[in-house]
Amino acid sequence: MTAVQTETVTRDRLLEMQRRMCEIRAFEDIVKDWFSRALVRGSTHLYQGQEAVAVGITSALRRGDTTTCTYRGHGTVLAQGAPLDRSFGEILGKANGLCGGKGGSMHLADLSVGALGSFAIVGAHLPISVGAAWASQLLGTGAVSATFFGDGAANIGTFHEALNLAGVWKLPVLFVLENNLYGEYSPITTTTANPELVDRAAAYGMPGLRVDGNDVVAVFDAAASAVARGRSGQGPTLIEAMTYRQSGHSRSDPAKYRPAGELEGWLARDPLTVAERRLHDMGVETAELDRLRADAEAKVRRAAERALSWPEPRPEDRFEDLWVH
């Protein structure tokens, strides 16, 4: 494990990060409510508690960089700049959703901001970011690709193939392992022979950074160093962000397998609270922080209302978007 050198995140920059985290939190709270009211089909996988990872990483990216993420991907796609209303629209299956209602909650994507998408097969997207980074290397664009995945994905074959290929070709990839301690319903210690996941970086010839995934500044600092390494042609980095999934795996999971007190301990270290403490230390008044959160919630609510008012796709729209003619 390599030590992370903390960079200075300015007050304004941290306020911006906090605003985005508040928007994602409010977004997911609304999605959770919609599920309970059967407004959303199938399943959903919520991001509450992990906002600092998506926001910290994407804050270190620039235009032209890309991300790929999992079916727990609302936060990452929003953090990269996808519009709130069209993201809601996709989850509702609306014609004006990001993907025209063809993907749904598990497939949010907005290529116009570099969000190559949410992939619903565990680990399937890691090689996609490797390919995006390969293109960057061949075309000389300097772009990096950040791929977000959970500790569960560290045990599927694409993890090995993608990290090895990125390592041997020295591709500008940020492998962002969101260690939220549970792969679906199973605690990491029951599924993973060596739970020190960051140590795997050495096997692929890349540095591994373990960071507090609930501290957006720590995540940003790690990302900034990994981005610099990637842009300068030195290759990929594995970032293990220690965080916690505040909800269950999906809407059908009440997460009763969690030991007593575990959730409470992590709630005390909620990423929004951690950032507020930092901002407070920088001299930001409580009233300003409350206003920021309230403004974010109002903005998200308005976006949700817009999305709810949009029309459904027509049945015949299902034939569109398969082929390029």
Partner: peptide
């Protein structure tokens, strides 16, 4: 450099081709 030998990693080969295609290449 436009022709690359890969490890024995079929999943990474196809996935990387998709990722590169999304960035404008024709793999």
């Amino acid at each position: 450099d436009r022709v690359r030998d890969t490890p024995i990693s079929e999943q990474a080969i196809i996935g990387a081709a998709v990722g590169a295609a999304l960035m404008g290449l024709r793999p």
